[in-house]
Amino acid sequence: MDHFIVPLLNLFRAAESGIVLSAQAEDPGVIRETINYIARRIDLIGELMLEHLWLVIIAIVIAVVVSVVVGIIISYYERSAQAVLWLCQILMVIPSLAMLAFMVPLFGIGFTTGVVALILYSLLPVVRNTYTGIRELSPAIVEAAKGMGMTEWRILTKIKIPLATPVIMAGIRTATVMVVGIAAIAAYVGAGGLGELIFQGISRSNEPMIIVGAIGVSIIALAFDFLLHWGEKHFAAKGKPGEVTEE
């Protein structure tokens, strides 16, 4: 069940901004208050969850399109590949608050800034997996296709992409789950989503808000993870991957 580890880490990351969850959650008062809070504000919570989902989906869809295209292109240019991957790597290690702060002068406060930042974070896993998925195909398979007279475009669409799909899917899953967590922080620049609950909770010392926000984020992360994991398996079963060559 290793694929639950990433979302769980996210749970902690989302909650890290201030709660001393472990100490106080044992106070039965907090649990009761949290349940009360959910009952009272279910509309708001639902709305923020949808907003959060929306933020993640928009960012991931755009990021996947861009990254897959970039990944394919660099698979043809070995030299540029290392530079591009290195750049994506740098983007990913910028702390999220710094990244968001950096985006504000460019895109102002709001949804767009959040989306752009999330896109930048999710580039690396998808670009890298697309690139390696294609590069690590058995050369014999590609050469057989070439030798029989398939055009480069046909080789790409009929052979390379289908065979690399499981690896690309794994990259998308990693990116999505990661971005769900980071999206909570995007509330800081007014991008909306469950992060708002967490940030407000922190400033008002309202523990139930923080807990609800954190749990909501993990639920979304787990749901995505489950869905995409299922998707991966589905593709793998259809595609029968695995090298079929012998010396």
Binding site: A140, I141, M148, M150, G239, V244
Partner: peptide
């Protein structure tokens, strides 16, 4: 492409396409 389409090629490592059925492989 024209040249290669008229030359049957059996590669040393066989190089079948693992995601395609035998029929699809042969129909390349």
């Amino acid at each position: 492409i024209k040249l290669r389409l008229d030359i049957g090629y059996v590669i040393q490592e066989i190089g079948l396409f693992p995601h395609m059925t035998i029929e699809q492989n042969i129909a390349t």
